[in-house]
């Protein structure tokens, strides 16, 4: 058979190519629901504006938090917006797991000869996240300027790396939250809670007492979504070891979340009919 000639191993190139294909199809689908697209974009902008309004109202009353100035916290705020962009744009399909499990539609992903997680996640590209990204860039640029952080290629590279590692934590957190949907019926709650964490990830971890500092660093690692990775830029003179480790920890955490997700998917597809 000719099939045997094909190499059985599917490399990165195969997956990249496939991802692009599926992504383009999804964008085409989105275009056919134009009204939804426009309203969702407005909704996204409004979410960011109101988030910023809450932030602003708070700092109107209190000039600083635990020695962190308004601009420093604003930097964290912008940074966290960038860090959650990947999870919003590329991993949005996680939100439909609990519904697909309920209706049984999830099973259709299980019959394809490609990685299940990849195939499921690649199906949706949420363009709304782009608006948030732009908003985040604006906030970050403003704070960056006010904090007089130098704008050299090295600093931009550090920013890119730290945003990427921060985003891995958010992605992994949402993967784990979504995976609960395979075991628990109607577990949208878990995702909603996990996603709410991002609103608190934008404050310095030092506001917590040691116990919760530990919990939010090692158990529910939201401190990595903005605080640790951004220390490189905001407070270059007091960079802790965890900041240096954040890329590696991010990859490890992502791998863990992927494994749990896959285990959940397999255990579900066996039971649901």
């Amino acid at each position: 058979m000719e099939k045997q000639n094909k190499s059985l191993k599917k490399g990165l190139r195969f997956y990249m190519h496939l991802y692009r294909m599926i992504l383009i199809q999804d964008l085409k689908s989105k275009m056919s629901y134009r009204a939804d697209f426009i309203i969702s974009t407005i909704g996204m902008i409004l979410t960011n504006l109101s988030g910023f309004a809450a932030f602003w109202i708070l700092f109107r009353n209190f000039p600083s938090i635990k020695g962190w100035s308004y601009h420093e916290i604003l930097f964290l705020y912008g940074f966290s917006l960038l860090a959650i962009t990947p999870v919003q744009c590329f991993f949005d399909n996680n939100w439909s797991i609990y519904r697909m499990v309920y209706t049984g539609d999830f099973i259709k992903y299980c019959f394809r000869p490609v990685n299940l997680f990849f195939y499921f996640i690649s199906e949706v590209f949420d363009i709304k996240g782009v608006g948030q990204f732009i908003f985040g860039v604006g906030v970050l640029a403003y704070a960056w300027n006010k904090l007089r952080i130098p704008c050299t290629p090295i600093y931009l590279f550090v920013l890119l790396m730290s945003v990427l590692s921060a985003s891995l934590f958010m992605i992994s957190l949402m993967n784990l939250a979504a995976a609960t949907g395979f075991w628990i019926m109607g577990s949208a709650y878990v995702m909603i809670f996990a996603f709410k964490f991002k609103d608190y990830a934008r404050y310095p971890i030092t506001i917590f007492n040691p116990v919760f500092r530990f919990i939010f660093t090692f158990i529910i690692p939201i401190a990595f979504v903005a605080y640790y990775p951004s220390l490189f830029l905001v407070r270059a003179d007091e960079v802790p070891l965890l900041t240096y480790l954040s890329p590696i920890l991010g990859i490890m955490f992502f791998y863990l979340s992927y494994k749990v997700w896959m285990k959940g998917a397999m255990s579900y597809s066996g039971t649901g009919s």
Binding site: L18, M21, I22, Q25, K28, S29, Y33, R112, P113, V114
Partner: peptide, 17 residues
């Protein structure tokens, strides 16, 4: 793919398989 012409789905399947 619900919102697309069938041929687009076939095209993706071509890549997947």
């Amino acid at each position: 793919w619900w919102a697309l012409p069938v041929i687009e789905s076939f095209n993706i399947l071509k890549e997947i398989y």
